[in-house]
Design a protein around this nucleic acid. Sequence first.
DNA 1: GCGGGCACGC
DNA 2: GACGTACGTGCCCGCT
Length: 874
Amino acid sequence: MKKLVLIDGNSIAYRAFFALPLLNNDKGVYTNAVYGFTTMLLKIIEEEKPTHMLVAFDAGKTTFRHKTFDEYKGGRQKTPPELSEQFPLVREMLDAFNISRYEVENYEADDIIGTLAKDASSKDFEVKVFSGDKDLLQLVSDKVTVVLTKKGITNVEAYDEALIAEKYGISPKQIIDMKGLMGDSSDNIPGVPGVGEKTALKLLKEFGSVEKVLDSIDQISGKKMKEKLEENREQALMSKELATIFVDVPFETPLDDLSFGEYDKQDVVKLMKELEFTSLVPKFDTEGATLEELEEITYDVLDEVTEEHLTKEASLIVEVLSENYHQANIEGLALVNEKGRFFIETQQALKSRALVEWLKDDTTKITVFDAKRAVVALGWKGVLLNGVTFDVQMASYLLDPSLSSHEISDVAKRKAKGQVQEDEVVYGKGAKQKVPQQAQLAEHLVRKADALYQLQPILEQELIENEQEKLFRELEMPLSIILGRMETTGVKVDKQQLEHMGENLNERLQELEQTIHELAGGAFNINSPKQLGEVLFEKLGLPPIKKTKTGYSTSADVLEKLAEDHEIVQYILHYRQLGKLNSTYIEGLLKVTKDETNKIHTRYNQALTQTGRLSSTDPNLQNIPIRLEEGRKIRKAFIPSESGWKIVAADYSQIELRVLAHISGDEKLIEAFQSDMDIHTKTAMDVFHVSEEEVTSNMRRSAKAVNFGIVYGISDFGLSQSLGITRKEAGQFIDRYLASYPKVKEYMDHTIEEAREKGYVTTLLQRRRYLADITSRNFNKRSFAERTAMNTPIQGSAADIIKRAMVDMAERLVQENLQSRMLLQVHDELIFEVPENEMEIMMKLVPEVMEQTVSLDVPLKADVSYGETWYDAK
DNA sequence: GCGGGCACGC
DNA sequence: GACGTACGTGCCCGCT
């Protein structure tokens, strides 16, 4: 049965406003009425489950009732501005929920509600009216219930005919007569003076209506009462008229257009967050699970998996909830293929011979989401997953790395395939994350697997259209397995070494702290930029060189400029340096080192960066210190996992600039690399027009900074910062560089042009990056997009190359039957652990594979070294 | 739990 | 001339 909920918008907003303290958010906007209104909405949606809904508002000040009685609603307090300013927000909230709202000149919300209640009852709707106003009770019928707020806003009472009879002893229609007699001070309806609720009810029970009471005045006992009624005959009739809800308001919209159900939950959450209704967001999310109308999905829960259920092609979910999938719990599995949709409980799955064999089969074609996660999580449980051929997350990432989410639910939504709830909705997040009961879990996993099953051909087609199929199949998919193996292998650390360094650092930090506090003339938290700023720039009166949003900048480049002014500064810089080492690297690494094995298992994110590089987390092993000797010593703690083995490290020399030489075709650059010159010296020669002998260390330093800028796409501003020169000088520098390498200039212009035409740039192996801002009228946005257009093919192609080298290298290790293991990748560097008897071959093989993995117009060069620790492999 | 400031790598 | 300037991760602080 259809159910229409009608809400008296003004009344509920008023109630909410006065029931709740005058909350405001941090922008100073009052939100208490919106908040109360929203909680009421959520409650109504949850409890009433309406199929149709409308919120009616009063429009304007005057209504047709004012023609009858111009003092109607007179003497009423003006709506406080703190409330009236909230009405637009209430409307916004309703729009987010996609709930109809209506207001019309001349009529009150009551009249709109009355009109619709009448119409809907005649069409066999069940109608529920929500208000704080007793007047509405006159609408009650066998089809219409009126819910009145009692106390606060969510404490309500539902009135049907029986309850009205019980409370007042009259029928709903007689509520109007009651108002006619007793009046209503809040609406300034006069009624009959001297007649209150008691008398009115008594009269109505006896005579039935205002008219009949007036016709029968002679039968009424009490002289005074007779007089009052006689004197106020007209006023009583007028009051009745004023209290009568008008049920024929012009309203064109067909009832069916008031249907409620589909709306964008994101919009609601966004608005709730804007208004800082953070407490409602999770509440809403869990309700959202039932709000979103998902079509039913059928599936089987398999207690026993047999060959019957397994086919060559399938989609698979191996649900790992923890962000870190190493040694993680698997919550359940789901499988979709032409035989059906299946959920398998984890324990059942792991002990099913048929399933485990199927997972191990490398001739199957399995579609998953985040292949590495599934393979690694199963791997830790001793189960091999070998048949993955399609990773939906990876496909989505390659098709457009700029998309902020490659979650199944988002990809499904984007491609309009499959109906999936967001993980966050099903599981919650943060500390409140938990696995739902099996039925809900099973359905969620099956829906995800089903979506993958449907998404796979679509994404595959798009990859083919983009000419990215090869990148996907031959590079990223194999690489994901290789990375998973590297992560699982882990890298061994010398805990005692770390602990020893930690003790030493702690001692020195204490001494430094004491010195700094003494020089500052008091104790403070050196790690707090706020407190440090106060000490340096207020207490000690040093000149503040730079400001941040929140106060003084105390960054290293600022402090370096102040080093001459006060002795304290050098100690602070040193304190910072050692503090960083201690907290991030010593304590940080010890925290993530596995106890039994003393190994660290990082995770590489292969579907994140905009350029195609990897990133590394938990811990990040791509930013272990190297520049300063003090920090570099951390690397002494990274050791081979087997005795007698060594660490071998190989890094590409100037891979980005070689890529630039190749794609620009610049003869001078190519020639420099073919003759294996020091590229920064060469750049200095070309930019400053001097011979090799004439290049000073300063010139080389400048040239190096320019090359750095080219590689990372920095601006003239960025270059000016790194060289400590003006922006103008930096700009001239870049111009001179481009004049020296005309083909580079051509490449830069060409790639920007291409980005403008196509909307994206590509790398050597067809990786893409879309640049929406390339046509922006905003200079900054456009400039940034242009630098990105120039830089991404360089950095991205370099990423392509090392990734391919990793795939090649993994293959060669198998081919050559080597025990050596690839452990880490740091953007242009690969780290291995190698047994003694393979040292000779690896020292030759690794650079060879890295150099030969692609053939460019310039040679690639990889330098290789080895040692007992990562530190020593230099 | 989150944003800001800072610092590490490439 | 604007206005904020390679990316990514993680620590601590200070606020909610």
